[in-house]
Write a protein that binds this DNA or RNA. Structure first.
Length: 708
RNA sequence: GCCCGAGUAGCUCAGUCGGCAGAGCGACGCACUCGUAAUGCGUAGGUCACCAGUUCGAUUCUGGUCUCGGGCUCCA
């Protein structure tokens, strides 16, 4: 080490690693140097560094005394860097293919990325374009272009992006507001950009960072010309990025869509290309397999295959009909929920589907949500609306007579079908429908009962969700939105009561600031399904507004009148939607207690039919839903059909069984059938399994319930 | 509502560079009577989403409409 003299010795820096240890590096050392110092494996996997909590390029110099961690490609943050860099590559590909294309924003999102464009002449992408763009992206990856960070003043940025109005708007927005809003690479002091110098594959270019903020702001040989006319691809961006495009490659463009600029439907509509990107071929393929599995589980597809429900166009978008099998499953869900609610002290009510407008004027819904309601019918001088919510009607039950504190908490429950005029583009099978049934409860309680009621309510909700095989929860507290009614004090009280309930339930929770309804803060319960997807199901809302609007009161122990608290609560949320979630969660293979056909009995030959019928009778007597499949077809074909229909138990009875009083048991998901199981044993086994509580371990249907 | 894509038999799809449309599965019938994921033969079934236009002729080309799907916006 000839240059290892005392002067250099003095110029070293020390950085602290996440494990608390520290490292000495030469002054000016970069993230790349640090990763290499720690180990070659880390150097290969590194995509960026986190310096004192801020993500930076690997090529950035590390300040002395910083706390530094290396972001690797397989971490969520590392993947986000990878995806964001891939989005830049895609934008470069699009500008190569469509010279003059304008590019707007291109962030990393869950599992992938997108980029929004405006093509010259208002052109649109077509499906074939996906392949063309991908091909150019692969060229760019092969070229191994460095991502070179540059800093510019705001005016330089405006000049650089003189032909990119969306970039200019971002920069101008920052300049006007003057606050730190650096998501797209602009901050009040200036802007940062990333340049991908165009070059032939295999050529070498220095990839060192360039600090150009104070001077002309240009790379040698790269004048500050408008980004879209330069040969290089330059994008406004905060970073960080992978060192070069050669680090990318395991990507796939997935779909095209239109998206409004800045999400505003009054602004121009841009062309969005979605893609996914991963650190390895294997990870990409695993992701694509997950997507395929989700498609295989699509409740609309399974709903048709299993003859559960459909949406007749003759009736109208977003309006479902349940077929006998789907109706049976739904009834089982409802029956179970009903009996559990009764045990928990709920009382069942029924209310009409339409009401005079005055009710929703009193509640405030017409003022706030008229757009989402079906238009009214004029009758006898009054306007009658289909109800979008049940709560005002439950309130009328409460106010039908004077209430005493001895009656509280009063818990009213209804499977209340409501109609909401969802815009056509948002409809999504059972998951977003125009007519649906809320399992709607309203709990009226005294002030001092609020915290206790909320805690037991949340526990009750989670218990029931577990019975439906959903065991992984994330709870979210949504606080006061910008548009709200009521006083700050009331919101504070209600929000804190909800927070206390979440804490006592012992579940992880997050807070969505401003996410509440206009009349109430709320808790939303999210569940993870069998393949890890997140669904919002239950909601609990404390409402301090309706009791006032409807002038609700009760007579307290002090003989004075008091205002009750009101809690809105839906457990399934929408019965239809929850049904759809369950279909996807179980991949159509409902647990025994919910399966529309629980058992099929297959006589081997016609002359076993009588014995098969007696087996079926015995099981029916024990309370099971049984079908006999006669020997019109070969046994193998009937077994196959039973499997495809996802019947939990396919029983085969032949000569041996007739003699011994047994059955052959082919249970769903098992590799091989069991022979010679006695009827009594079978009944015992099935009876245990048919309890809703049986399926609480988070077990779901077989991951692959299709053909072998 | 907006952008993109798709509508052919009950389902999944092929096909027609413009000349009165096909497969597999399913359904139905007959035969087969079988021990664990497809028995054989046969029959029926389509206004090629709908309406215009171009053409000797349109399922095919053009325009419009409807429905469905993917996104965007929205979701009390």
């Amino acid at each position: 080490m000839p240059d290892h003299d005392t002067a250099d010795q003095a110029r070293t820096i020390t950085v602290t690693l996440p494990d608390g240890s520290s490292r000495q590096l030469g002054a000016g050392a970069t993230g790349t140097d640090l990763a290499a110092e720690i180990g070659p494996g880390l150097a290969r996997a590194a995509v960026a560094v986190v310096v004192d909590g801020a993500e930076r390029d690997l090529s950035s110099s590390l300040p002395d005394g910083a706390t530094v961690s290396v972001l690797t490609v397989a971490s969520p943050e590392g993947r986000a860097v990878l995806r964001h860099s891939t989005a830049h590559v895609m934008a470069q590909a699009v500008t190569r293919l469509w010279p003059g294309a304008r590019y707007a924003i291109g962030p990393a999102i869950e599992d992938g990325f997108y980029y929004d464009f405006e093509l010259p002449g208002g052109a649109h992408f077509s499906d074939e374009d996906i392949e063309r763009i991908e091909a150019v992206m692969r060229e760019i990856v092969a070229e191994d272009q460095p991502f070179v960070r540059e800093e510019h003043s705001l005016s330089e940025g405006l000049q650089l992006f003189s032909e990119q109005p969306y970039k200019r708007e971002i920069i101008e927005g920052v300049a006007a507001v003057g606050h730190e809003a650096s998501a797209e690479g602009a901050a009040s002091g200036g802007v940062s950009t990333y340049r991908n110098p165009a070059r032939a594959a295999g050529a070498q270019l220095p990839a060192s960072p360039v600090q150009a903020g104070t001077g002309t702001g240009a790379l040698p040989g790269s004048p500050l010309s408008p980004a879209s006319t330069a040969r290089d691809f330059v994008d406004l961006c905060r970073g960080p990025h992978v060192p070069s495009t050669g680090r990318l490659g395991h990507f796939k463009l997935t779909k095209l869509a239109a998206a409004y600029w800045r999400g505003d439907e009054h602004r121009p509509q841009l062309q969005r290309v979605y893609g996914t990107a991963w650190e390895s071929r294997a990870a990409l393929e695993e992701h694509l397999a997950r997507v395929a599995e989700a498609e295989r589980r699509d409740h609309r597809r399974l709903g048709a295959e299993l003859d559960l429900f459909h949406f007749p166009p003759e009736i109208g978008g977003g309006l479902v009909v349940f077929h006998p099998k789907g109706g049976l499953v739904r009834r089982l869900m409802e029956d179970y929920a009903r009996s559990e609610h009764e045990r928990a002290g709920y009382e069942f009510v029924y209310t009409p589907h339409i009401t005079k407008s005055t009710l929703f004027e009193t509640s405030g819904h017409l003022g706030w949500y008229a757009d989402g309601m079906y238009p009214p019918m004029e009758m006898e001088g009054a306007s009658y609306y289909p109800k979008p919510m049940n709560c005002p009607m439950h309130i009328l039950i409460y106010t039908s007579r004077q209430r005493s504190y001895r009656e509280l908490p009063l818990r009213l429950f209804e499977f209340g079908t409501v109609y909401r005029f969802e815009r056509s583009g948002v409809l999504n099978g059972l998951l977003r429908a125009r007519g649906f049934t809320q399992d709607d409860s309203h709990i009226f309680c005294a002030s001092e009962q609020l915290e206790g009621e909320l805690s037991s309510l949340l526990a009750f909700v989670l218990k029931l969700l577990r019975r439906f095989g959903l065991t992984e929860f994330e709870v979210e507290l949504s606080t006061r939105p910008e548009k709200y009614i009521g006083t700050l004090e009331e919101w504070e009280r209600a929000t804190e009561a909800l927070r206390a309930a979440m804490e006592s339930a012992g579940v992880p929770y997050s807070v969505s600031e401003g996410g509440g309804a206009f009349y109430a803060p709320k808790i939303d319960v999210h569940v993870r399904d069998a393949i890890g997807r997140r669904w919002q199901v239950s909601t609990i809302q404390v409402d301090l507004q309706m009791p006032q609007r409807f002038d609700m009161e009760y007579v307290g122990a002090d003989n004075a009148r008091h205002r009750p608290y009101m809690v809105h609560r839906a457990l399934f949320g929408s019965v239809e939607r929850f049904f759809g979630i369950l279909v996807e969660h179980y991949a159509g293979a409902f647990p025994l207690w919910l399966a529309p056909v629980q058992v099929q009995v297959l006589p081997v030959r016609d002359d076993h039919a009588q014995y098969a019928a007696s087996v079926a009778d015995r099981l029916r007597d024990a309370g099971f839903r049984v079908a006999v499949v006669p020997a019109d077809e070969p046994l193998g074909a009937r077994v196959r059909r039973g499997k495809l229909e996802k019947v939990p138990y396919v029983l085969v009875v032949g000569d041996d069984d007739v003699t011994a009083g047994t059955v052959g048991v082919n249970s769903r998901g098992s590799e091989r059938p069991e022979r010679g199981v006695s009827l009594a044993e079978l009944v015992t086994r099935l009876s245990a399994e048919a309890q809703p509580e049986h399926d609480q371990a988070g077990r779901s249907g077989p991951a692959c319930a299709g053909t072998p």
